[in-house]
Design a protein around this nucleic acid. Sequence first.
DNA 1: ACAGTTTCCCGTAAATGC
DNA 2: TGCATTTACGGGAAACTG
Lengths: 429, 429
Amino acid sequence: QSLVMKLLTNALVVEKQPVMSSLLQRPLILKAGVRFTATVRFLINLPEFKDLLKVTPVFDKDVEAAVKGLRLASCCRFRQFNFVRDNSKRLDVDSPGGGLAAEFAYMDIKRKTKAPNEQSHVGVCEELHLVTFVTTFQIAGLECNIQVSSLPVVVISSSSQVCSAWASVMWWNMLSPSEPWNLSLFSNPPPLSWQQLSQVLSWQFLAAGQRGLDENQLLMLRDKVGVDPEGLVYWSNFFKNESAWIWIDGILDLIRKYLVDLWREGHIMGFVSRERTRVLLQEKCTGTFLLRFSESSKEGAISFSWVKHSNGEAHVHAVEPYTKKELEFMSLPDVLCSYSVGSKFRKPLVFLYPDIPKDVAFGRYYSSDLQTPKQGGSGYVDRRPVHVSLLPLTPHSPTMEMNAEPETMELEQWFEEMISDILTLPAPP
Amino acid sequence: QSLVMKLLTNALVVEKQPVMSSLLQRPLILKAGVRFTATVRFLINLPEFKDLLKVTPVFDKDVEAAVKGLRLASCCRFRQFNFVRDNSKRLDVDSPGGGLAAEFAYMDIKRKTKAPNEQSHVGVCEELHLVTFVTTFQIAGLECNIQVSSLPVVVISSSSQVCSAWASVMWWNMLSPSEPWNLSLFSNPPPLSWQQLSQVLSWQFLAAGQRGLDENQLLMLRDKVGVDPEGLVYWSNFFKNESAWIWIDGILDLIRKYLVDLWREGHIMGFVSRERTRVLLQEKCTGTFLLRFSESSKEGAISFSWVKHSNGEAHVHAVEPYTKKELEFMSLPDVLCSYSVGSKFRKPLVFLYPDIPKDVAFGRYYSSDLQTPKQGGSGYVDRRPVHVSLLPLTPHSPTMEMNAEPETMELEQWFEEMISDILTLPAPP
DNA sequence: ACAGTTTCCCGTAAATGC
DNA sequence: TGCATTTACGGGAAACTG
């Protein structure tokens, strides 16, 4: 009997499914009031247990017990939750393997009315909770109690907290192999080595955009995150106030939603400082550009910088970053394709750094050719947005006369274009 | 006593407040599960009633009674709802007038589990319900019951039903002066005269954009709505399947959100057929344009049409309509300001019909001048979207050679522009 | 007053009912 | 099956609460 018990104690395995559709890659975060699904599997293939194992999910089971017992008023406690319905289910035969399993669908937790001593000193996303599945059964006249718990779970009340909750999950994931499971981990969170953290960060990008971070990108992030002389990163620096994580998470979201293709193909250098951008570009020929993430926007935004040589000097310009809202309307490849400068609408972007012709890198993603107007049956004239900048130096600004040289160049270019246009025009009849 | 009773019977007046913030101008629509507020006022200024009048809101009070009494199984019934909490309140002194009043905040209805005979043959937005406020009190040993009801209320479960619900409210409003209150109005809805309907429609535009509909606009709508030979409009034509109302409501929403200014100032002709647009514009000089609502989009969209004379022929073009989603990014005035055509980015819009220079009509709403690049401290180059169309006839399309004449014109214009540009350039040093 | 947290609720999408 | 209606829930904003 004792052997059976021991086997059973470790016999249930929990596979958690996502809380929300947008959290497909983010398990271990539960939003109160939003349904989630978990599957419990009985690993010992004994058909005689069929219909014997009635499993009940309990939220924060051991925490309850501990509080009811010894340390009732001794310390502050986490928020308390419970399941809104009775989700008990009997394990049944699982089609493929023949083992016993049950899918707990429509699980849904609700916060209990706050207890008087329920005043945690960590943020809600630093509370770690557990979902435990318990079952009691008789075998050979003996009563057995077995149970299995989920990995630690962060409970949020609004989707605006997903970003913070995910930071906790990452931190916990990196520490769990070395530390014993400790639900109060964040009351005194141990630091991570940059070694460890950089690896998790790279995984995030792999998950979001099918490509991790390269050495240069990680070097730039290392500066942002704040690594101490011993190569350690502290939780409070990584996550708390105006931290690097919120910025990085915004960019992950940007990639997931609008830049998967370009990120996967490595066309986005992304994490590169403004200064380094200048250094890289000024060596390259006019029209060379690169894509980098805005360092100021917490929402995730992407800009491009390009170089223009005139008069022996290299000028590096950077466009106002594009936000998610803008990319919803026009894909980044289309922006790059049509971006124009000056009153003559010249195209300043030619080569993706180091030297890939723009259309080779992005051509396959252009939504359609500007040169072939759509003739829909609708009778409406098709149109498309073109993003245009007036650089500080333009032919029409007389206040800039001290910079007359580049203007002369523009004028020359313009005549060239004009001649070329005339040559391609059909001859008047 | 009888006099007092009679006075009291009509003594309570209900002032309903909006269900939802976006329904500020749309009372009489309640969404299940969304809180609303109502104020009940006791019109007789007798301070001795203070704290005597405990008023309770009841949903569909008389309907309940009628059903419990006689016609229980006789006919189909509307959906049933009730208030989720006890909202009883005592009337108290109302600060300004000194009269008795109470504000019922946090009222919230919930659908009852469906009764077996609850199968109405009208749509949910055609069911008319009532909120009734009842009070019982003793005066001089006599028990008095008084009550007052709201105007009929449409109960919806999703904000996607607001459009349909509002159609019912309008129809009811136009009929209520002549018909006795009838909650089953829509089981056999009487027609409205076009006279009446056109007035309500005009009011909708007055409410949404501070300007009603003029005669020409109403004439166009008359055709859309479908008026019978006797000048009557039937509910089923106005509202049911692919009806005019859904289209009109989309446009009202477009105006409310993005076009209030232009609509108020009468710069949007809006309701004008494509044919009439052609007739109006071809008489006018090149560059004259007008704004009209898309007739095909159910979502509310606006297009502009302009005329170009070349070779003695008038060509009227219309741009692909702008949707709400697009106007969120770029205001219509900015679109009009920057809209360009052809590879030379010429501006085809000059005069708002009949002859108002574009900048006079829209200039004050341009978000900023394209000619003065913003020099933010951010170090980023400002940019803005310009909408560009390639008309079927362009200098670069050799397949169009039979229309060579307009191209020659374009070429001439282009040289003119070039000369003018050269003249305004600062002289090379 | 304020920041962290929760609630509210529109608008869209998906699910459900009929 | 298709349409009518309801439910689900992300996302932004307001409201709450210490």
